[in-house]
């Protein structure tokens, strides 16, 4: 959208770090402030940033419509199925310890059983939701990039 060299180069430099930070927040949801929602929102924001500073096509190159819709359904489906796995293991729906998920030692990275799995699914879901919402609302405007920057 913006025809500005500085913005483009900066956002291209910064975007991978934002994505890495988002993934960190998602994966450490059970150890530090954060979790699936905040991490997913940060990850989604990086894709929105690319679409804003270049144009929509560049954003869609990062994550296509097909992939986004599969990820959305997949994230929610994975969450629901994790609950069903607990039933298969003999617990109630969405049970964690009582269904026999290995908890590990509290404070370690691989601890907390189903929480980590659910957090990852929620993170995927939120990241794809944020990008899809953004793309869908700005699509079918006048073709992007036709706006001449007037400054």
């Amino acid at each position: 959208m913006m025809d500005d060299q500085i913005v483009r180069i900066t956002s291209r430099l910064v975007a991978p770090f934002i994505q890495l930070y988002g993934i960190y927040i998602i994966l450490h949801g059970h150890l530090s402030p954060g979790g699936g929602f905040s991490g997913g929102a940060i990850f989604g924001a990086s894709l929105v940033l690319i679409a804003l500073s270049f144009n929509l096509e560049a954003g869609i190159k990062q994550i296509s419509h097909q992939t986004a819709s599969v990820l959305e359904s997949g994230g929610a489906l994975g969450f629901a199925l994790t609950g069903l796995v607990a039933i298969a293991f003999g617990g109630n729906y969405l049970a964690n310890r009582s269904a026999g998920f290995p908890l590990g030692e509290a404070g370690q990275f691989f601890s907390s059983g189903a929480i980590l799995v659910i957090t990852v699914f929620v993170g995927i879901k939120v990241a794809s939701t944020i990008t899809t919402l953004f793309y869908n609302i700005i699509e079918k405007e006048e073709p992007l990039g036709n706006h001449k920057q007037t400054d």
Binding site: G35, F37, V126, L133, N136, I137
Partner: peptide
Amino acid sequence: IVTGIVVAVSVTAYALSIIV
């Protein structure tokens, strides 16, 4: 409230798309 915030975001996004 973490849950509530996400719900509010979803409603806002939908309302804005109707406004568009």
